[in-house]
Design a binder for these strands. Structure first.
Lengths: 249, 249
DNA sequence: CTTGTGGTTGACGCGACGTCAACCTCTAGC
DNA sequence: GCTAGAGGTTGACGTCGCGTCAACCACAAG
């Protein structure tokens, strides 16, 4: 009624090396070992292995897998999974951003413009926009924004940039599809954009509208958005104009 | 005019350990070493480091980074980056799928239904639908589909599932936003869905329409899509009806 | 009896560093 | 001038999830 390592490996779709590894780290021990020292697994082990593999498939580190499969408390499991969920989203967003950046780099290469490091950062290099920002929105706002940025930590900054890239990519997609600026999907993206900006500075109606104008009129901002696709800056501005109507102030 | 390791590390946002590591593997050597053996870097090294960090940020392995920063041929660089771009997209899609699956798992947990391994896969367990599929679409189509699936390899199967999850998530987003089924963005998603199905079986007009109906009428399929969000199955069906008009047969 | 197949433990490799450890050098304050 | 502290140096081991030998053992078929 029991099974050897090769058969378990075949049915579960893993290598026998993996099973030996799980034995070595105590994650999945054989039901018993034969007289010749060979590992023998029973049905309970197969079920446990399936549980393990499901979690492994979700990229949960094996240490966490162990604590999950060893606990009966669903609340604890949920906590662990929630953490993991957040991590997955962050990683996915980050990779999406990276993919977009690579695409931009490829465009640069194909057009013959050499890629320099400053080029890569120009979109969001804080210092380049700083003097104007002080003139435009006041020292106070800029200083508070800097403080917020510094307080984020490296992970937070990364997540923040990733969120922006996702929003811009979404707008670009709608620009390509010809979606109207008052479309609900576009307005939802603008809401995310407003929330994104608000991490550092909560613009009122006019300020937000002004920001939208600047995205089109200022060639540097315009370029930043056009990198995501033609018409992105325009669609964003048009959508911001509509969205701004609902803002106070 | 030169800089010590700590200063370079601070301005570049890496640790000094990283710089020592890059020195050890020959990726970034200091301009010179002081009389006391300390590393000193010049401006050229700073620029090279920026270039390195851009690539590292893209998750390019350091060996590849070395060949990129050491080559002047933009075509070679482009090839390397193109490969990497594809890899990034695949990984990002996979992580997004995993995140969605974790979310579903959390739902299960919160509703008290225990998560079992079969549960996790019920959405796309081929064997569960097989008998009906044979009756509905014929043995030929089913056999060819199986062959195609088997021919994909594990990586291909994973990518295939990830593509489906992305499409479903996109539809769900539009369902939540109330987008019309004839919206260009929705129709673009349906086009992807049709292409996705066509990996195994290219449905004609009526067959594709029938598939769309089934997504709503068959509670198992319906449930699969509703997991991505309320109204997902309905929007998908409505959009498929429109899309199907353009199909031959 | 050989050969082939598949089991065992043990150990190293991978990738990009993090993290001690043991020691050295420079600067600042008393 | 002495001492403390900050920060430099090399060297080596740890991380994570196995893949990949290596050396050896056990069993069934020809």
């Amino acid at each position: 009624m029991d099974i050897d390592i090769a058969e378990l490996a075949r049915t579960a779709g893993v290598t026998s090396r993996t099973l030996r590894h799980y034995d070595a780290i105590g994650l999945l021990r054989p039901a018993r070992t034969g007289p010749d020292g060979r590992r023998r697994y029973g049905e309970a082990e197969l079920l446990r292995l399936q549980h393990i593999l499901v979690l492994r498939e979700l990229d949960v580190p094996l240490g966490t897998v162990a604590s999950i499969v060893d606990t009966d408390d669903p609340a604890l499991t949920a906590d662990l999974l929630r953490d993991h969920h957040a991590a997955l989203l962050a990683r996915s967003a980050r990779l999406a951003t990276l993919a977009a950046t690579v695409e931009l780099t490829l465009d640069h290469l194909e057009k013959g413009t050499p890629m320099t490091a400053p080029d890569m950062f120009e979109g969001f290099d804080q210092s380049r926009y700083e003097p104007e920002a002080r003139g435009r929105w006041g020292d106070d706002a800029v200083d508070r924004s800097h403080a917020a940025w510094a307080g984020l930590g490296a992970g937070g900054r990364e997540a923040h940039l990733a969120e922006h890239a996702q929003i811009a990519a979404g707008i670009a997609g709608h620009a390509a599809a010809g979606t109207s600026p008052d479309d609900a999907a576009v307005q939802a993206l603008v809401a995310r954009h407003h929330a994104w900006v608000s991490a550092f500075w909560t613009p009122g109606r006019d300020a937000y509208r002004g920001l939208g104008e600047m995205y089109v009129e200022d060639p540097r901002f315009r370029k930043t958005y056009e990198k995501f696709g033609e018409g992105t800056a325009e669609l964003l501005r048009a959508a911001i104009r509509i969205f701004a109507d609902s803002l106070p102030d």
